[in-house]
Amino acid sequence: MALEVVKPGLLTTIQDLGRPGYFHLGIPMGGAMDRMALRAANLLVGNDEGAAGLEAVFMGPELLFTRDAVVAVTGADLPIFVDDVEQPGWTALPVKAGQRLGFGFLKAGARAYIAVSGGIDTPPALGSRSTYAIGALGGVEGRAIAPGDVLPLGQPSGKAKPGASVPETLRRKLGAPTELRALPGLYWHRITEAAQRGFFADEWKVAPEADRMGYRFRGGEPLEFVPREAPFGAGSDPSNIVDGCYPYGSIQVPGGTEPIVLHRDAVSGGGYFMIGTVISADMDLIGQLQPHMPVKFVEVDMETALKARADVAGMMDRIRAALA
């Protein structure tokens, strides 16, 4: 009743929809970076949307099934093989005990989500199976999967419909150019008007330092600060603040040079100023960005942010309806 890890891929972790409630102690919510992709994969195999699956970065794992199951792969676009036969993505695929799931080279996106009927049934930690590697929490002993790991599976619901797939129109587009919508705020007033305009006008590129904690960007002009006398306890650099909380999606710019957008495994706080926050509707998109991809930040107001959030929720509803 399990899944054996033959090859782990580059960095493959168990993720569900995370463990909100412990951010005040520095433990982030975690969970799939592209939540819509994980939800869709779970629906395809008849699981609850929040069941634990695998998040594979840039490269897929090789997995051996020890029981019959239904599997689905969503998110990043990479060739999917059951034994040596190529299979479609975003589709419920029946597999037999003894068959292997494997992958070819990445074509677009960054993270593939693999859901298996019954879900991965490793022991939850603080209410979630999500792997938070920095804190050695969740997943398999708090780490990415490794060769020889045996991942237990839960009881399938029997609701999977082999062959069912998510219509093309309901898959979010992968690939450049990407626009990330952001609401200015927090310490936005610390930079000059010219720097404020420049941040949204410049083209940025995803830096190699891009992971579950956050995505770094480079290539835009350094931000010019409004002069100040450093507040007591903040530190002397103009980008320092008295250590405070960081929102998920917040854009900090240490030294005013390279923006970092915090993601699901965010550090919960620190001493760098933030100029705003990527809106909740666009957080999933970040999880599919590859290093060196061009990105533009687009300024929006709250009304637009809420409308975008409703649009994403509507898209998820249509996925549910299509698979019902």
Partner: peptide, 19 residues
């Protein structure tokens, strides 16, 4: 007070540290 995107509100009591 400041919004951190559509899901957070940040409340700063003071710019500088004190008990």
């Amino acid at each position: 007070y400041s919004f951190g995107g559509d899901e957070h509100i940040f409340v700063e009591m003071d710019e500088e540290m004190s008990l």
